[in-house]
């Protein structure tokens, strides 16, 4: 909120710190504390990044593709389940315990099961990332519906709105900001889990590239892949922040202004 306006001088300070860290890193490499080939200097990383740049976009696209598909599936599933829990008390009472048992299960623990069910293809990555990113959507949709101001519901009843109308005109709009926030968290999780799966099962994508590079001892390629992943992550984060601001503009600064 307070970080909205940044002068050049302030940006410069942040960049100076990045430069300081890079210098520190180069110093460590140059001093020879670390054996040759284990830690490339920032210069070597940059060179590797440029050398590998024809190869990186395709891998990044593979990672992004699966992340977005998983986000779509998991997000919709989570929101649907959460709305169901918020709107239908009987549904909530019945499945509540089962879901609370499933929710803390770390998604990566499902990788072996996923291999058995889906083999080592795209489906595996998508299924596991979707499972992981469904939960924040579930929670935000459920709590968003439950946290609706009772006065709104009373008003809807007074005005004679039916059940379907109340859900469509009152509950959904009122829970919308919470749902968008849940989706924002979910995309970050989908990305992190997608890359984790790629690390464990290096078939395709930037994570796989990093994993194979690390096992082969190609440190330049490894750091280039890490750099690319960081950039993709930043990009996702930035786009999401813009989208959130746009979607929630009509809900006022407390929802749309958050950093």
């Amino acid at each position: 909120m307070k970080r909205a306006h940044r002068s050049h001088a302030e940006r410069l300070r942040g960049c100076a710190f990045v430069a300081f860290l890079a210098a520190l890193w180069s110093g460590v490499c140059a001093s020879g504390v670390v054996p040759e080939g284990q830690l490339p200097s920032p210069y070597e990383v940059l060179r590797a990044f440029i050398a590998e740049s024809p190869r990186l976009p395709a891998q990044a696209l593979a990672t992004l593709n699966r992340t977005l598909l998983a986000f779509l599936l998991g997000g919709l599933g989570g929101l649907g389940l959460g709305l169901g829990h918020g709107v239908f008390p009987l549904f909530r009472k019945t499945t509540h315990l089962a879901i609370e048992g499933l929710r803390p299960l770390p998604s990566v623990a499902l990788i072996p099961l996923g291999i058995l069910l889906y083999g080592m293809g795209n489906q595996l990555n998508i299924a596991i990332a979707a499972f992981a990113c469904a939960w924040p959507c579930f929670i935000s949709a459920r709590d968003g519906v439950r946290g609706v101001n009772p006065m709104l519901l009373d008003t809807a009843r007074t005005l004679g709105l039916g059940r379907a109308q109340t859900i469509r005109r009152v509950l959904l709009p009122a829970a919308f900001p919470a749902m968008v926030t849940g989706l924002r968290i979910a995309l970050g999780i989908a990305f992190a889990v997608e890359v984790s799966v790629e690390l464990v099962i290096p078939k395709q994508g930037l994570g796989a590239l990093a994993s194979t590079a690390a096992l082969a001892g190609e440190s330049g390629l490894l750091y280039a892949a890490i750099l690319a992943l960081g950039l993709v992550g930043l990009l996702l984060n930035h786009l999401l922040r813009r989208a959130t601001q746009r979607l929630l503009r009509s809900y006022g600064p407390q929802w749309s202004g958050g950093a």
Binding site: L199, G207, A214, L222, G233, N237
Partner: peptide, 10 residues
């Protein structure tokens, strides 16, 4: 913005 598990590699 880096996926955290990634840091195990370097």
């Amino acid at each position: 913005s880096l996926p955290p598990a990634l840091m195990a590699l370097p």
